[in-house]
Write a protein that binds this DNA or RNA. Structure first.
Lengths: 155, 155
DNA sequence: CTTCGTGCAAAAACTTTGCAAATTG
DNA sequence: CAATTTGCAAAGTTTTTGCACGAAG
């Protein structure tokens, strides 16, 4: 992969640099690598997981966990990253403006279908406005039993 | 308020007692008060907030924070309580089987507004069917900036 | 050069655990 | 009675902070 030629990433990087500039903060190798890692791995990371991954993929950079925390707080405050957590799992972070994704998940076999529904999104926007909110994102996961698992169900 | 005459609460309590019985666990004053408090205050609590509230409302019961944590873990495992967290705020707990609702969450101050939208739910059902799924549940969180935080952001 | 960022280690905050005494079934 | 639960304090975890040095603008 050659990140230098990725327009989408370049745009994200530019946004980040603007945030830094606006706040008179500095662009450092550590901050760059953190953003890059969040971009390249489309999962949800705990600070610790992110730290581990960066140490593995960039052995040359000596990055401390405190830097990860500080960067994630900065990124979250500037709305480039969002965090969430459900149930037992701790807080997880992901890029805020990834292409939008909702999930339909089979509780039996774990199969995941991604979908997008304009009508629901429109409705969500309305609900936010009615409550005085400026909407910045959402998480929606539907749980159920997929076709195959319904068929195979012998219980 | 006379909780003795509250059918809804009685039902919840019964459910809890059944969970305890199934696992050969014991029904204690502390566990009862925790459940009761979650029922009576329809907010989202951190363990610490819940502890504080119980100490305030039941000064006679000497309840430790460890007991709160242990009870919340038990209640969450048995699906009587769910937890969620977002943005800066830590993990919060609420009763699971309140009438169904989704959350509109301020990423800045952590304020939570609950809502329910029949149109969205109908649509979710359709999406599931189109994909061959039998729907059993969902999680939907809308993230944004609440009215107050929008105002205050003008620095 | 001046200011900010970093790693480190220490501190603070949050959560779990071990244990003796108390309570439940 | 036997077994579980509790509060407490100690032990783990997770997250934040202070500081001296290094890096960015």
């Amino acid at each position: 992969m050659n990140f230098m030629e990725n327009i989408e990433y370049d745009h994200l990087l530019l946004e980040f640099k603007n945030v830094l500039k606006e706040n008179l903060l500095k662009f450092t190798k550590q901050r760059e690598v953190i953003l890059q890692t969040l971009y390249n791995f489309p999962e949800h990371f705990s600070p610790e997981e992110l730290h581990f991954l960066i140490k593995k993929n960039h052995p040359k950079i000596n990055i401390g966990i405190a830097t990860i925390y500080r960067a994630l707080n900065l990124l979250e405050t500037s709305e480039l990253v969002t965090s969430l957590s459900f149930g037992k799992a701790g807080k997880k972070y992901e890029l805020a403006n990834k292409p939008h994704h909702d999930h339909l998940i089979c509780k039996n076999c774990g199969k995941i279908i991604e979908f997008e529904d304009k009508k629901i999104e429109k409705r969500q926007e309305n609900i936010a406005i009615q409550n005085g909110f400026k909407l910045t994102g959402h998480v929606m996961q539907l749980y159920g039993i997929c076709f195959n698992c319904q068929k195979n169900k012998k219980r």
